[in-house]
Design a protein around this nucleic acid. Structure first.
Length: 410
DNA sequence: CAGTAACGCGTAACCACAAGTTAGA
DNA sequence: TTTCTAACTTGTGGTTACGCGTTAC
């Protein structure tokens, strides 16, 4: 018996909503995500039938089971029989599809809701535009109909679709999230560069690290400390020892900062580093110069950290799972969950690529500047001439004790 | 050795207002 | 659908207050 629905608490959960961090049965999924336009955008996918904890990313046809990355790896770890299992990528979806529509994209769902075939969401939200191969969505990656009630399912794996969606090769449709939810397209466009696929179907991924261009990852050094949980000095030592390599080793790692001011999560793994900006980018206050670090739901982190000597900021041993609820991972996921492993079981990427990436990183690190960045020069110019009292701005015409243009006080 | 005060350091808060954004008419 | 207006939000820098850790007594 799998995990029960977080909403009704009765039926077995089949869907995981990453936005709500909730495991839902199909019925509740429909109910919850038909509430309003925002909830319809929530990205959902099936739940791993093996561990019942993580979102499934692969459907093993031979076993007839939906599996998460970890369980997929464990179950297909190279044995002659299992390694040739037919697999089908499981896509995330949004919108409010009917069970019949779900069954179209997930043909293995054989028991749709009895009464839901004909029931669609209010406002006719059952409409469904499937871009499983990115084909349909490709025509309108940013979505002329972005605000409409279409369902978007995409793993973006269509190589001919060169847009944000296709950039994301994994089942997650976070880029689609961005195109829909982030009001600042520019920042999102910048941010989307940081995406890197991790949820690839075993056996079809190429050398992920070859695609990694550290220059694309705008990690300020201050972020570096956050990312890797060590001071710069230690980081350098780490690098000198080839530590950056270790940061990208198979076991992978992620780091976190509980800051909820929006931000991104960073996961380094040999099989695919993922630097992910969460949808919270709507808070643009610091998105430009200082992105906060958050974790992608990664239940295995605690276990991984237990094997690491690094201490990651915000993830100390005495932290409670509840601290990470805003980080995209439920407390339940963070406690007592199976370890997570990157999708690439063997260290297939060449060490040369890794070395080159490290070199690029180090070069860029050297070139970094740490001066405060002013986003709006006009506002700085204004502030530079403002009169003050004890450092505070004063109203025009009122007494002041400091005038940047004239040191004489009145 | 424990307790307290002094000290240094880092940082959030404060202020006004122009510019930008959003919502409604 | 477009335009206009009002309301709201954001960002800017110098100073201060406060908390925390270290040191001296």
């Amino acid at each position: 018996m799998g995990r029960t629905c977080d909403y009704c608490g009765e039926q077995r959960s089949m869907v995981y909503c990453r936005s709500d961090l909730a495991f839902l049965c199909l019925s509740c999924d429909r109910n919850v995500h038909s509430a309003n336009a925002l909830s319809k955008r929530h990205s959902r996918t099936l739940v791993c039938e093996r561990c019942n904890v993580q979102p499934a990313c692969v459907r093993c046809i031979d076993e007839g089971a939906s599996l998460c990355q970890n369980c997929n790896l464990v179950g297909h770890d190279g044995s002659a029989a299992s390694s040739f299992h037919k697999q089908q990528s499981i896509s995330y979806y949004s919108g409010c599809p009917s069970a019949a529509e779900l069954s179209k994209i997930w043909s293995f769902i054989l028991d749709p809701l009895p009464s839901s075939d004909n029931s669609t969401c209010p406002e006719g939200l059952g409409l469904l535009s499937i871009s499983d191969s990115g084909a349909k969505n490709c025509e309108d990656p940013m979505g002329k109909d972005a605000g409409q009630d279409t369902m978007v399912v995409g793993d973006g794996s269509d190589p001919q679709c060169v847009d944000k969606t296709s950039f994301w090769s994994g089942p997650s449709s976070i880029p689609e999230f961005f195109s829909r939810e982030c009001p600042d397209q520019f920042e999102c466009a910048e941010s989307s560069k940081l995406f890197y696929p991790t949820n690839r179907v075993q056996g079809i991924h190429d050398d992920p690290f070859a695609d990694l261009d550290m220059d694309e990852v705008d990690i300020n050094l201050e972020n570096y400390d956050e990312l890797f949980g060590v001071t710069l000095t230690h980081s350098e030592q780490l690098l000198e020892n080839g530590g950056i390599n270790s940061l990208f080793r198979r076991q992978g790692m992620s780091t976190t900062d509980s800051d909820d001011q929006g931000g991104f999560s960073v996961e380094g793994a040999s099989a695919g580093i993922m630097v992910q900006v969460l949808p919270a980018c709507s808070n643009a206050a610091s998105a430009d110069s200082m992105m906060s670090v958050k974790t992608e739901p990664n239940p295995g982190f605690a276990a991984k950290q237990a094997h690491s000597n690094l201490s990651f900021s915000g993830l100390t041993g005495d932290s409670s799972g509840g601290d990470y609820q805003d980080c995209g991972a439920s407390a339940a996921l963070l406690l007592g969950e199976p370890p997570w492993f990157p999708p690439c079981p063997d260290s297939s990427f060449q060490s040369t690529s890794r070395t080159e990436a490290v070199m690029r990183y180090k070069e860029k690190k050297k070139a970094r500047k740490f001066e405060k960045r002013v986003r709006y020069a006009s506002r700085k110019a204004r502030a530079d001439v403002r009169k003050r009292v004890k450092g505070r701005f004063v109203k025009a015409g009122e007494a002041y004790d400091y005038d940047p243009l004239n040191t004489r006080s009145y």
